[in-house]
Amino acid sequence: MTALSEYQRLETTGLWRETPDSQRREVVVSLGDATLVISTMAETALSHWSLPAVKRLNPGKNPALYAPDGEADELLELSDADMIEAIERVRSVIEKRRPHPGRLRLWLGGVLSLVTILVCVLWLPGALMRQTAQALPAAARIEIGQRILAGMADLAGRPCAGRDGVEITREFSAAVFGSAAPQIIVLPSTAQVTAHLPGNIMVINRSLVEDYEDPAVLAGFLLAEDLRRRQQLPMLRLLEEAGLMATGRLLTTGEIDGSYLRAHAARLLTTPPAPVATDRLLARFEQAGISSEPYAYAIDLTGETVLDLIEGNPMRGRLRAPLLTDQNWIALQEICDG
């Protein structure tokens, strides 16, 4: 049914014109089930208009003018408010039920636009940062790492470089990591014991070489920091902190503002290291052929909170050559004394 039930018996009078040249005549207008019926006063039907096709020619004005469709010559003039309201309500219901391909396209366009915005906001920045971090030449990463190190030195003191200590750190790093050994820098004063920088640089607090008798303790802290470096590339971490604008500038010009590097340096010195999974750390100890027990007891002298590192020691019952000779270890312990 097309007509609303409350209006199905509604009738009124109006003025009807069959053609533009015809004289208007008074007629009876009845709201039918799916039609608007125009009759003479003697109830002789003159015309039937399909309600879905009825067009109002002067919206909002009175008397209301209607036509059976957009191109018809017939014209109906109505002044009865109830009949006008009825026709308008029926036309509104019909319009809502009518398929609207344009609206579907509008909705699809809106959804596509929303998806595009979400991709740009949520995915694109991360993708751009990852791409920039991976595409940056090694020389550029090294330069940025050195600039961050300079910022750390302004806050924590110049890197220790006493006697033969610098050369021994290279030897020690190679013993722990092999051919991909990072450059190890000892700082005299840091809030955190380890940090990693772009350019394959690891920074350690002097306490790791001065406060322990076993070089395996230092090796354990370095292996744990290496796991953190693998979990989050140091260059990517810097770009995530600096933001999209700094990333875009670095990608297009190869430059990054020093303020971002100084802020990153301060954050590295003060941010507690992220935890690492015990099973992954034990795998790194096994790969390096280093006992995990000295590192575990350095973290907790009682061993209660690091029992997995102690019991899972991959080198238990196995021997390997010392990481450093006693003489070199003593020289490394004095690296900050020169």
Rank of each mutant, 00 (worst) to 15 (best):
L301F: 14
T194H: 03
L4T: 04
C336A: 03
R98I: 05
A138W: 09
D214F: 09
S79R: 13
E11A: 08
I185C: 00
Q287Y: 04
L323E: 01
L208K: 03
S30R: 15
T13N: 05
L324Q: 04
D21L: 11
A81E: 15
S292W: 09
G60Y: 10
F172L: 15
R267I: 01
L281N: 01
R25Q: 15
L233K: 09
T247S: 01
D21G: 10
I256H: 00
G70D: 13
L65R: 09
L281V: 04
A133M: 05
K96A: 12
Q231L: 10
V29M: 08
R262F: 10
Q134I: 06
S207T: 13
P275Y: 06
D337S: 15
L319I: 13
R103H: 10
E255Q: 14
R56D: 04
D214L: 11
L57H: 10
I201S: 03
Q146G: 03
V166H: 04
N313W: 01
E167P: 00
P99A: 06
V93I: 11
D33C: 02
R316S: 07
L281R: 01
L309Q: 06
G303E: 12
H196I: 09
H264E: 11
I148S: 00
G317M: 02
H100G: 02
D73C: 07
P137E: 10
R141F: 03
S173R: 07
L114H: 08
P59Q: 08
L227H: 01
L112F: 14
W107C: 07
G157W: 05
A34G: 11
G178M: 10
D308W: 04
A138M: 08
V166W: 06
P234A: 11
T194S: 08
L78R: 01
S292L: 08
A53G: 03
A72E: 05
A191Y: 09
G145S: 02
T12N: 04
L78Y: 06
M202K: 08
L319S: 13
L155V: 09
L250V: 00
G70R: 13
Y7F: 15
L324R: 03
A156Y: 00
L239V: 07
E240G: 01
T325K: 05
L208A: 02
I87Y: 11
R267V: 04
Y295I: 07
K55R: 15
R237Q: 15
A191C: 02
I144H: 05
S39G: 00
L218A: 07
T13I: 05
